[in-house]
């Protein structure tokens, strides 16, 4: 399946934020925004919803914590109890460092892997870059052209000092 998109290229950070805000007011549908660095406030202008990744992070952290607790409890008291200086088998203070580290490790690494999978990134995938200069100094806003009037989109983008505006057909890989 292919679909029609608008690609607006902007020269300044403020312009792309303005264009995103105006597009939202006009009810255009966003495909994505491409910027050479994280532009603060762009997510707000686009009206993006909060990501669900923090919840994934929390879950992964809890899983890491649970795993570390179980692993140490089971190895140290059930599977292979060792007498360390006469302490009880089940000595919680000694377990805490590993519990902490595994929580952080699972949450940190796990959330990156989750992100890569959720966004279908990773090795072997050719990135879709609408305009090569987003890797340098340009800002790009991509809209779904399906529902909107091309003339209105052009007018809005031009009003926000777009450098180029093009309509394109792309393969829909959603």
């Amino acid at each position: 399946m292919s679909r029609r998109i608008f690609v607006g290229v902007f020269e300044h950070e403020a312009d792309v934020i303005e264009a995103a805000g105006a597009s939202r007011e006009h009810g255009f549908e966003f495909v994505d925004a491409y910027t050479p660095y994280a532009v603060h406030g762009l997510d707000r202008a686009m009206g993006l919803e909060r990501s669900w990744l923090p919840w994934a992070c929390l879950g992964l952290g809890a899983a890491g914590l649970g795993f570390a607790t179980w692993l140490q409890f089971w190895t140290m008291t059930v599977a292979w109890p060792i007498n360390v200086g006469g302490r009880p088998w089940n000595s919680l203070p000694a377990f805490v460092p590993v519990m902490f580290e595994l929580t952080v490790l699972c949450a940190g690494v796990g959330v990156v892997i989750t992100f890569v999978i959720a966004r279908r990134l990773g090795p072997g995938r050719t990135p879709e870059i609408p305009n090569i200069r987003v890797t340098d100094d340009r800002f790009v806003l991509v809209l779904d052209a399906g529902a909107s009037d091309p003339r209105v989109v052009r007018r809005v983008f031009e009003h926000c000092h777009a450098v180029t505006i093009e309509e394109r057909d792309v393969e829909d890989r959603r």
Partner: peptide, 15 residues
């Protein structure tokens, strides 16, 4: 908490 526990655990462990 990390630092508090680091101090506590070393002392608890060495005893």
């Amino acid at each position: 908490m990390y630092i508090w526990f680091s101090q506590y655990m070393l002392i608890w462990y060495a005893n």
